[in-house]
Amino acid sequence: MCLAIPGKIVKTYEENGLLMGHIDYNGTLNSVCLAYVPEAETGQYVIVHAGFAISLLNEEEAQKSFEAWDEVTDQLKSDGYTIENEPLSEKRKDDKK
């Protein structure tokens, strides 16, 4: 019951007085209670445990670690590793465009 992965909110609605949402996990939709993330909006990501969203994913924080990792991949490249993956941070992806 504890292997929670982030899912994307595709729809919010109310049921029996509780805020609920449809959450997309790579194409599979699930109904989840959003009462603990009342500020949630469609398009945002939530972490769900046993039918309840317990956390709204903080995308800014996630970007921070991706940016730190961009530096890691730069270093890897200069160390002679081949990096095939796309840059992780949005910032770096924008730079590339």
Binding site: M1, C2, A4, C33, A35, Y36, A50, G51, F52, I54
Partner: peptide, 10 residues
């Protein structure tokens, strides 16, 4: 644990 408590309490 604390992870399922919010749902079970609700």
């Amino acid at each position: 644990f604390e992870t399922t408590a919010p749902g079970n309490a609700m």
